[in-house]
């Protein structure tokens, strides 16, 4: 794929209105008693914000910093280390294909190529309808069922290239069977519409890995 540069010069249009609702802030604060410092609630905060808003924009980072009483640059500093967080809009569902050795030996690359072909997108890209984003990740610890991939929370095991079409067509391909905990889910009150899945042009996570 040709290099697509992220436009960092144009500020992302963000409203004056706060992104983090009071319920969301309260949910983040509920993690404070667990730790000795407020900053330690940063990873949980980022998870909850991303699960609610879809991604963590600069404005959201500033607002998280406000809640945790730290500097916004500290939020960016931590966030940029971890591959799980998105600073730009992503698709409704994120497909994470494992690229570890077990999966590679068992045909993971072919599965990835098939997904790319069927969705018509490359790595770190989002489909035009905003439905899927595609990334790879190191070992998903599902090696006894390689090749494997995640669609949001759901781990799909022993995937073969010929299974891909059926998998993508399944509406419930991101639903897990076990009982869920809502610890990191959006707070129920905040009916915040996701800012994601918008135009599909925003393709990249800031972390372009050595690949």
């Amino acid at each position: 794929m040709a290099w697509k540069a992220l436009d960092r010069l144009t500020p992302v249009a963000e409203g004056e209105a706060p992104l983090l609702s009071e319920a969301l802030r309260e949910k983040i604060r509920s993690f404070f008693p667990r730790y000795e410092t407020k900053r330690a609630a940063l990873l949980p905060a980022l998870h909850i914000v991303q699960n609610t808003l879809g991604h963590v924009s600069y404005q959201a980072m500033e607002e998280i910093a406000e809640v945790l009483d730290i500097h916004p640059s500290d939020v960016l500093d931590t966030l940029s280390f971890y591959t799980h967080f998105w600073t730009h809009p992503k698709g409704e569902k994120v497909i994470t294909v494992c690229r570890s050795l077990s999966c590679e030996v068992m045909g993971g690359k072919e599965v990835l190529d098939e997904i790319k072909k069927q969705l018509g997108i490359g790595l770190h890209e989002t489909t035009p309808d905003g439905k899927y984003s595609l990334v790879t990740e190191e070992c998903l610890a599902g090696c006894d069922h390689s090749a494997c991939l995640l669609i949001n929370e759901k781990l799909h095991k022993c995937v073969k290239p010929e299974d891909v079409a059926k998998l993508l067509a399944d509406e419930n391909n991101d639903k897990i069977d076990s009982e869920r905990s809502d610890l990191f889910d959006p707070p129920p009150e905040s009916a915040v519409t996701k800012t994601d899945a918008s135009d599909g042009t925003s393709d990249a996570n800031e972390a372009q890995e050595g690949n």
């Binding site: 799980h84 995640l150 781990l155 076990s178």
Partner: peptide
């Protein structure tokens, strides 16, 4: 206090252990 550090890819594991 005990903290169980779980990698984020362990979604199903997280729900099981949290329960």
């Amino acid at each position: 206090v005990a903290y169980i550090y779980l990698r984020v890819e362990f979604h199903e594991v997280f729900h099981i252990v949290q329960k």
